[in-house]
């Protein structure tokens, strides 16, 4: 199986995000960057699938030269090689999906795994756009029934199941009020949810090996994609702060407040 996995560079989910006073963006100083957590889950799932069925995991990221850090991280986890689409400046989801479409057409993978959403823009769109552009099936919000403490998880069993004829995958999707299972003909697009797997740590030998793994460089021009954004981010602002609350000493005091002040019970 050849699997293409995306690796977006995002702010560390632990970092404190502050808006610049002029609303033009966020304060960059002091921020740490990581691979989007959902993409890390995608890399892990890709590695589990090729461990079981043979093949190759190719990881792709779009951005300036700094995104090579996230590509190296995925390579250190065990991905085989990387594609870097070198682009600085704004691009929207339509642009990202159009670039990925070209990379897919070049690489011809059996499966593309993306995160369900980036934890910076929180748009939750790119996988679905890409599936539509390619005319492929999509299984978003991929999850599994077993918990993170299960035997299956400990043994790194892939949650995405290749059917007996190897022509489709079965995917369990996390949706409202339960879990839906779908079967997609390959090639297909899958987007990951949180409970698909627990990503591995990169080992020291993995990190050493990653240094010599190849990163191919492409550009929007080489891929003939116009990435002029159709979404303009006009202004950013901080959300309204909640007014400071109080600590209550005991349960009767709490109930008194809820009953007489907040009037919610």
């Amino acid at each position: 199986m050849k699997i293409l996995v995306t690796a977006k560079r995002v702010e560390d989910p632990e970092s404190k995000i502050k808006v610049k006073p002029d609303g033009s963006g966020i304060v960059q100083e002091g921020l740490k960057y990581k691979i989007n957590p959902f993409d890390e889950i995608g890399v892990e799932e890709g590695l589990r699938l090729v461990a079981k069925h043979q093949g190759e995991v190719v990881v792709v990221s779009i951005g300036g030269k700094e995104v090579q850090e996230q590509l190296r991280h995925a390579l250190a986890m065990g991905a085989h090689r990387a594609v870097w689409v070198n682009h600085t400046g704004p691009v929207d989801q339509l642009g990202i999906a159009a670039l990925l479409q070209k990379v897919v057409e070049k690489e011809q993978p059996d499966l593309v795994i993306l995160g369900k959403q980036s934890i910076d823009d929180d748009q939750n769109q790119v996988g679905q756009y890409l599936a539509e552009f390619l005319g492929w099936g999509q299984a978003t919000f991929a999850s599994k029934v077993e918990s993170m403490e299960s035997e299956q998880e400990k043994n790194k069993v892939p949650a995405i199941v290749l059917t007996a004829d190897k022509k489709s995958v079965q995917v369990i999707r996390e949706v409202d009020n339960g879990l839906a299972t779908v079967e997609c003909q390959l090639p297909a697009v899958v987007t990951t949810d949180l409970r698909l797997n627990q990503p591995r740590y990169a080992s020291l030998p993995g990190i050493m090996k990653a240094k010599s793994k190849p990163i191919e460089e492409l550009t929007p021009a080489k891929l003939s994609v116009d990435v002029t954004p159709a979404i303009q981010v006009l202004k950013m602002s901080a959300p309204p702060a909640r007014k400071a609350g109080i600590k209550v000493a005991d349960v009767p005091a709490l109930v008194e407040k809820l009953h007489n002040e907040a009037k919610v019970v």
């Binding site: 808006v19 934890i119 981010v233 950013m236 901080a238 959300p239």
Partner: peptide, 19 residues
């Protein structure tokens, strides 16, 4: 224009769709 959350609701962004 539309207001939507980014960065886990740490930022509200006003966006314009031009298609």
């Amino acid at each position: 224009t539309f207001t939507r959350p980014m960065w886990a609701g740490n930022v509200f962004a006003d966006v314009k769709l031009t298609t």
